[in-house]
Nucleic acid binder design. Structure first.
Length: 495
RNA sequence: GGUCUCGUGGCCGAGUGGUUAGGCAGAGCUCUGCAAAAGCUCGUACAGCGGUUCAAAUCCGCUCGAGACCUCCA
């Protein structure tokens, strides 16, 4: 709990106070998607988490440069030199050019992130757009004796590097353990050591995606682009590097090694790792084939789902769990989140209609400002959105009490109402990026409903309960809920 | 095999030494013509065993259980 932002730095394995390198500015790099197929809902969790982090940093007043790459150069699917290129294999599968695959799934990724109301990064560089810089970095690593060339391919010399810098500092691995672990995977390798990783890979003639380099035609290794693009746009030392937990090793470990091998600096000061999303207890992953696509959630078109769920419902479900915890989603959780979503936004709506008349601070004023402060304290405590949500629910309760008369409005100040409005808007809209539940989209429906509601009102006045209940029940079947408030005011909402 | 994480009430899920997490579900009450919505109240949880402490879900040890990474993955 603090009024200053603290971040769990997975490199230090501790929560640390966040101090940017340049005052009022933050450099944030997040490993983006490999655009060879549609992102699944697990990918969306990661990028939603960083969207929330990006939004909050901006909310705090930082000028944020947010770089998230697009991996569009095919890298190896394994380290045995089989040269399988994901972009190319998918291209063959779909009978498209590799760059058509890249374009198709880049557009798809953007569409999905838009649906989930994620802000675009300020720079979204592509791997293929930075081949020259990647070659330069490889040359520098060779020059520094941390890399060697074998038959048109270049490898990072982990053993040589480990003499100067500790390899495994991020993931907590020891080089001996790694060597032991790799032994059985050793094939007819051209690498000096099994733990060495590719920086540049020689391309066989049938490879479509290949570039000219000092070592012949080839393509970059898969850890290289992030080192290159993060340092190019954010500097050799920058603030935050994020990504999914599964990238911690080897990807991020290799990034640090490349950076230190090149610049003597490891790049980011704070490393943030978001945790995985499970469905029914199992990690959702492309390689498990159990992934549900974002569009399948939104349309409800998947056998494991009972109905469609709005992107905000899914986001709210994410927010109720800390980003660094594993999250297992299931239908029950989605249904719960949907109700919670409606409850919060209803409170937000109600607060717009309230006016406080108290002249002085009251116990309610104190409670409201206490909860509002708790929200920012929780965010500052390593983005504890789950706790923020808890506080927002308590505020909703207060709002409902005001509407219901349990809390008198002459016991509330105008400033209290203003603070409520601000808190709901700040967190729900600006920081969490949630959207309102579906409202009546056109005025015509409002007019129609006015007629229906007044007919029902008439029936009720005549104690014609059969008619008034018929209207209510049939509207409910059509997905329109009638709510009778106090003093005869009637509202409706769409399911 | 190596490295690491976790085990919280019916379900989900915060919390790291002493204070109500919260949501959903359930029970009772208030309001209502009846409902719905909303409000109030309630269940009193921390895998097991042992230890440290005035005090432990929270620290230490052991046992059991679940999972992650070590190979492409967000």
């Amino acid at each position: 709990m603090s009024s200053e932002l603290h971040i769990y730095n997975s490199h230090a394995r501790a929560k640390e106070k966040f101090v940017p390198i340049t005052k009022d500015h933050v450099g944030l790099y997040v490993c983006g998607p490999t655009v060879y197929s549609e992102p699944h809902i697990g990918n969306v969790r990661t990028f939603s988490s960083f969207d929330m982090i990006y939004r909050y940093l901006k909310f705090l007043g930082y000028k944020v440069r947010y770089v998230r790459n697009i991996t569009d150069a095919g890298h190896l699917t394994n380290e045995r030199g089989e040269g399988v290129n994901r972009m190319e294999s998918q291209a063959k599968l779909e009978s498209l050019e590799p760059m058509e695959i890249v374009q198709k799934y880049t557009v798809n990724f953007h569409t999905v992130m838009n649906l989930f109301n994620a802000l675009p990064p300020t720079i979204e560089p592509t791997a293929t757009g930075h081949i020259v810089e990647q070659i330069e970095m490889v040359e520098k690593l060779i020059e520094n004796n941390f890399a060697y060339e074998v038959d048109g391919s270049v490898y990072f010399d982990v053993t040589a590097y480990n003499e100067k810098h500790p390899y495994g500092e991020l993931s907590g691995r020891k080089i001996e353990d790694l060597v032991a672990g790799y032994r059985d995977l050793d094939g007819q390798d051209e690498k000096r050591n099994s733990i060495d990783f590719a920086l540049w890979k020689k391309a066989s003639p049938e490879h479509i995606m290949q570039w000219r380099s000092p070592w012949g035609m080839g393509f970059p290794g898969w850890h290289l682009e992030c080192s290159v693009m993060s340092t190019k746009y954010l500097g050799q030392a920058f603030d935050i590097h994020g990504g999914g937990m599964d990238l911690k090793f080897p990807h991020h470990e290799c990034e640090i090694a490349q950076n230190k091998g090149c610049y003597d600096k490891g790049g980011a000061r704070y490393w943030m790792h978001t945790n995985m999303l499970n469905f029914n207890g199992q990690k959702m992953s492309k390689s498990f084939g159990n992934s549900i696509l974002p569009m399948e959630f939104i349309t409800g078109s998947h056998d494991l789902l009972d109905k469609a769920y709005a992107p905000s419902v899914i986001k709210l479900l994410f927010l109720q769990t800390h980003y660094s915890s594993e999250l297992d989603i299931n239908i029950k959780g989605l249904q719960d989140a949907e109700k919670a979503w409606k409850r919060l936004f209803e409170a937000k709506q109600i607060v717009e209609t309230l006016a406080g008349t108290a002249k002085q601070k009251t116990a309610t004023s104190d409670k409201i400002s206490e909860l509002a402060t708790a929200c920012s304290d929780s965010m500052n405590d390593d983005f504890n959105t789950a706790k923020v949500m808890a506080n927002l629910f308590e505020l909703s309760s207060i709002v409902n009490s005001m509407k219901g008369g349990q809390i008198a409005l002459n016991d509330v100040q105008e400033q209290d109402i203003a603070l409520l409005k601000k808190t709901f808007t700040d967190y729900l809209i600006d920081i969490f990026g949630l959207t309102e539940p579906k409202q009546a989209q056109n005025d015509k429906l409002d007019e129609v409903m006015d007629v229906v509601i007044s007919l029902r009102k008439q029936a009720r006045e005549n104690k014609d309960w059969a008619t008034s209940d018929k209207i209510r029940d049939e509207l409910a079947e059509a997905g329109i809920q009638i709510k009778d408030g106090k003093d005869g005011d009637v509202s409706y909402s769409l399911n």
